[in-house]
Nucleic acid binder design. Structure first.
Ligand SMILES: NC(=O)c1ccc[n+]([C@@H]2O[C@H](COP(=O)([O-])OP(=O)(O)OC[C@H]3O[C@@H](n4cnc5c(N)ncnc54)[C@H](O)[C@@H]3O)[C@@H](O)[C@H]2O)c1
Ligand SMILES: NC(=O)c1ccc[n+]([C@@H]2O[C@H](COP(=O)([O-])OP(=O)(O)OC[C@H]3O[C@@H](n4cnc5c(N)ncnc54)[C@H](O)[C@@H]3O)[C@@H](O)[C@H]2O)c1
Lengths: 207, 207
DNA sequence: TATTGCCTGTGAAATAATTCACAAAAATAT
DNA sequence: ATATTTTTGTGAATTATTTCACAGGCAATA
């Protein structure tokens, strides 16, 4: 069981490796990876050790190989189905991102409670009314969801998603969504909340 | 110096207290706060202890007083000036949020490199071309910035913001922005990156 | 005004995460 | 072929964070 901070860094590392590979780099040392990620080299090596291999070399890591290692550990090679609930300003902006509609993730459904709104959105993604969330998520075996509804209905939406068997949730509404099932993961992305954390850090750092 | 995890929880607590106050609650125990935030009661009490007071009671915390305490510690009562760089889909969606345009935060400037685009956006917020970021941030003493530009220019934008004297950055571009100054804080909000972390956690939790 | 029960504050203990230090392996230089 | 340099892998030490345990205060009750 890999500790959460290490999972986080390994995911960042994975993205970095993809970028490096695209720009033609083939090998890189833990020291250089650390510099690019703003993390100590020891930390990088420890994280990689969690993947459970050992193939020492004096010329750093083979980028292709390391990428594959992470990818296998976390199953990044199999496409994950996702959906968006709440097709307002934020929801539609996210829905239209190319990087979320092919490759690693695939947004295959959008939900909104406002039926008129559904009709005005033109999209290649299938759209459904909010009352069918549980049924559609279960039928299409959707694993991940992005919540972009007003705060007051976020918990209700999350409950429906969980009933449908969702595994992970990215929540943009500024509320703490309660989950009792420890096998379901949530990440809150509260923008004004994060601005508040930043300003608290700024104040805390003075003196 | 309050540890970062505690700052994070205190900010979440602050929001919760605001909500509770609005719904008319006056006092609440650490146990109930913990339940609502998904955190142990001990943890809540320890976090509050970092604020540096002690006023024991057998009927929980006074919500108004506790809010004020946090607010004073982190200076939440003084309005913070913020700006958005990159007025594409995401940037404009964020710009239009009511909760970011008054009260605690105030978005007072928007920037984009595409001059034509600036002209088509109708907004009550002042808009400027991207080359003036440094000058405007310095002149208006803007403390916080939200970056919503393509990944390839995010570092460049961050550098300009830092030159202007920015203190905190919320970065939506999927890259690690490098800061050498430890007095500047950054929070990355990479949506597809977070989806990846969620799917890694899901995989990691199995077996 | 005693008594009882509830709840906080906090030092101590336990747990988690990071950093260190160095042996061993691979590449490179001599 | 041998020495030197580079870089990994990992147990141990350190540091950070969370959890625990309980003394002591406050409020409610009689
Ligand atoms: N839209 C989303 O929900 C979403 C999801 C995931 C990630 N992101 C990330 O957020 C960022 C913005 O996404 P978007 O969908 O709004 O993209 P977009 O293309 O709609 O908008 C980008 C805007 O940035 C402006 N810009 C380009 N270079 C600039 C510069 N140097 N200075 C100032 N402005 C500049 C462009 O003119 C454009 O208006 C991207 O990095 C994207 O990967 C967005
Ligand atoms: N737009 C931003 O950049 C931004 C910034 C900070 C926070 N947020 C948060 O993100 C959420 C969405 O923001 P937005 O700007 O897109 O709001 P919005 O009002 O534009 O969109 C909300 C959408 O959710 C739909 N909806 C309402 N109840 C629903 C339900 N029960 N089931 C399904 N859909 C439902 C509405 O019909 C609407 O289309 C809000 O919670 C907001 O606080 C957004």
């Amino acid at each position: 069981m890999i500790p959460f901070p290490a999972i986080n860094r390994l995911c960042a590392l994975y993205r970095l490796l993809c970028d490096l590979q695209e720009s033609g780099v083939e090998r890189i040392s833990s020291a250089d990876l650390g510099k690019k990620l703003g993390v100590g080299a020891h930390n990088i090596r420890k994280d990689i050790a969690f993947l459970g291999v050992s193939s020492s070399s004096a010329s750093g890591y083979d980028i292709k190989g390391l990428k594959q290692l992470i990818s296998e550990k976390f199953e990044f090679n199999t496409e994950k189905k996702a959906c968006i609930v709440g097709l307002g300003r934020l929801g539609t902006a996210i829905m239209e991102r190319k990087d979320l509609c092919g490759g690693e993730f695939h947004i295959i459904a959008g939900f909104d409670s406002n039926i008129n709104r559904l009709e005005t959105i033109s999209s290649s993604i299938s759209l459904y009314p909010a009352y069918s969330i549980t049924e559609v998520v279960r039928r299409l075996r959707i694993e991940l969801a992005i919540i972009a509804v007003p705060a007051c209905v976020a918990q209700d939406v999350a409950d429906k998603l969980i009933d449908g068997g969702i595994k992970g949730i990215l929540n943009f509404a500024p509320v703490i969504v309660k989950l009792d099932n420890k096998e379901i993961f949530i990440k809150n992305m509260d923008i004004s909340g994060e601005l508040r954390v930043l300003s608290a850090q700024i104040k805390n750092s003075i003196r």
